[in-house]
Amino acid sequence: MSEFLSYITGLVPVAATLEIWGRLALIAALGFVLGFAMNRGSICTVIATKELVSERRPARFIALVECAAWAALVYAILETEPIMEAGWSSLVYLVPAAIFLGIGTYINGSCVFGSVGHIGNGEIEFVFTFLGIYAVLYTETAFDLLSDQPVASTPPSLGATLLSLALLAIVATRFSVSRRSETNFRRLTLAMGTVGVTSTALAILAPGFSITASFGPIASVSVVGAAISVCMFGGSFVSARLGKHGFRLKWPTVKAMVKRTLAGTLMGLGALLIPGGNDTLLLIGLPAGAWQAALAYVLFVATVAVLVGKLGSIAKAWS
């Protein structure tokens, strides 16, 4: 969207402004829908892992895989390659980074998906999670602590037909294991499809977009970054207002602010070294068929699962 900034400084012909504004409006709308769906579906890796480990209910975890399948299908249909702004780190960094990401996510009580939902619900303390994440990402950018890695892109490993069949199989599996214990099958299906499609569309329209670093571009006065972030959290807020759980503004305690900031710092460190948070692993790495993404995601979930199994978790779905 550098054309937009050029326009407002008078460097782009007036004839091009309609397309620029239209693209920005589309990006803003997609950001809103993404935030709305994340809140409405109670999408969170911690919740999904807790239900899997403590309650033997795998449906919500299967739904996360379903979300990745939706993203892969969109890439395949559009014949577009999932793009990583920086290539995957070596195992020396990748393995501990995934563990840091898992520890931070457990301490936070919610992954980046769920944190967006909690903020929409009025739980302001989760803003400090993102502040911790962005402090790490901004520090690295400001001081260039890591060597530059080349952009990585990989075409989807499966065609649209095979991915469609795989998606149907995943949905059928989730239905078979959830029909007795889950009452939100339809809502979760719509939410996962919406998140997969909108996040992929945003990644194509605004290369480099990720939920983890959605605030990052704001520091460099990016109109696109600001539009996505504001509309994403706005969508989560509207979803909460319309949902059964409602919107209840809850001001954070000092203890909560410190806890979320610490958790966000660990999550940011993990996302920096992988590179990418659980959203990047699910919605870009897995659709690209990257073994690094699969390994990092397995280690990330395994870390959360071990902590949930040993220490328990109070995380729970809000819809």
Rank of each mutant, 00 (worst) to 15 (best):
E79F: 11
V298T: 12
R248W: 11
A302G: 05
P13H: 11
L262C: 11
S42L: 10
M38W: 11
T105Y: 01
I274R: 03
S222V: 00
M84D: 00
A63K: 02
L272D: 06
K244Y: 06
T9W: 10
F300K: 04
G208P: 02
T129W: 07
T17P: 03
A294V: 14
G193Q: 07
T253I: 07
W251R: 15
A302E: 04
L18R: 14
G114F: 01
V46N: 05
T17R: 15
A206L: 08
V12R: 10
A227E: 04
I103E: 09
A68V: 03
P217M: 04
T141C: 05
P275I: 01
L266H: 00
V74E: 03
Y93I: 04
G196C: 09
Y93H: 11
T198S: 12
Q292A: 13
V14H: 14
V136L: 10
V197R: 00
P275K: 10
T17A: 11
P13Y: 10
M84W: 14
V74K: 02
G268D: 05
E140H: 02
L167N: 06
G312N: 07
A25G: 04
T183C: 08
A72M: 06
L190A: 09
I228H: 03
M267K: 03
E123L: 14
I170A: 13
M84P: 01
V33P: 02
G277N: 07
P207Y: 03
T194G: 06
L30V: 03
R179V: 13
D279K: 05
